[in-house]
């Protein structure tokens, strides 16, 4: 009987691992494909086997950096500005709003929160064109602000911050602070926000990745190619007109290079994330 149960359980125990491995393969395969394709010279790209490494990686990189006098770096800088700046501002706004919504009772609190929940359900893609028309009206279209501002208020980030603040900051702690005579501002900056850091890291990563990958908003908002982020910039290489050879090798190399900062960010931030989560668990 015992042998029987063991035999039945074993295969089931493998299933979750197997599913996860499949999931990992599903997620990592495209990345590997980009990596391999980025190493191929134009001549190898369509002629060699899909999974065989090519010999042109460094030529591709050099060619990409030389393309239009190094416009790649300008686009990379723009992306960093949009993603880094946008994610920082968005995290700050989300943390403060989430904290206020979690810990203060004021008229209209539930209304605001419900509106935010509703906001989560509206895909940002749908808002891009109305936002463009609005920004045109106030004269901000085709400026850096046109891409930054719409990303700062992020309903999902506020929602996360509120949930996190509710769970992570005990009311008794704030009470103790008030009894000791701390002002509300001091309570927030010295007591509440430090406890919310793991949540804020999550929000920052979410927003950073979302803005890094965002295509439609900058595509519509920006006319000046000097303000393009990488996504829109690389797209101009792809759709360069029918009479042009599409610069596939540069696009692939550009796509691959633009992945690296995201990978680095995740690996470094992840450590930060884990320590805080586990230190909370021990307490």
């Amino acid at each position: 009987m015992a042998a029987h149960t063991v035999r039945v359980r074993r295969p089931w125990g493998v299933v979750p691992t197997g599913l996860l491995l499949l999931g990992a393969l599903y997620c990592l395969f495209p990345v590997c494909w980009v990596l391999i394709a980025a190493t191929k010279s134009p001549g190898e790209l369509f002629t060699t086997s899909t999974l065989a490494f090519g010999t042109g990686f460094f030529d591709n990189v050099a060619e990409l950096f030389a393309y239009r006098d190094g416009v790649f770096w300008l686009w990379a800088g723009n992306t960093l500005l949009y993603a880094g700046g946008g994610a920082l501002l968005s995290t700050a706004v989300s943390a403060v709003s989430g904290y206020a919504l979690a810990k203060y009772r004021f008229p209209g609190r539930n209304l605001i929160f419900n509106l935010l929940i509703g906001g989560i359900l509206v895909p940002s893609v749908v808002l891009a064109i109305p936002q463009y028309l609005l920004f045109s009206k106030i004269g901000l279209a085709d400026s850096h602000w046109a891409v930054l501002l719409p990303q700062i208020l992020h309903p999902y980030g506020i929602y996360l911050a509120r949930v996190y603040a509710t769970a992570a900051i005990p009311d008794s702690m704030l009470e103790a602070g008030r009894i000791d005579g701390a002002s509300e501002g001091r309570l927030m900056t010295r007591v509440a926000l430090p406890m919310m850091v793991p949540g804020m890291v999550t929000i920052f990563l979410f927003q950073f990745v979302a803005i890094w990958n965002n295509f439609l908003l900058p595509f519509i908002m920006l006319g000046d190619d000097g303000k393009f982020p990488l996504t829109v910039g690389l797209y101009t290489l792809l759709a360069a007109g029918a009479n042009q050879p599409a610069l596939y090798n540069l696009i692939l190399t550009g796509a691959f290079l633009s992945l690296i900062p995201l990978i680095v960010l995740f690996l470094t931030m992840q450590r930060y994330w884990k320590t805080d989560l586990s230190s909370g668990a021990v307490k």
């Binding site: 239009r68 045109s136 279209a141 101009t236 759709a239």
Partner: peptide, 23 residues
């Protein structure tokens, strides 16, 4: 001043949107 855009159908849609928005 040249602003290099992505070509094709999207370029047309983008120009129409910009014209509609007045810039």
């Amino acid at each position: 001043t040249v602003s290099k855009q992505a070509g094709g159908d999207d370029a047309a849609a983008k120009f129409l949107t910009a014209a509609k928005a007045g810039n």
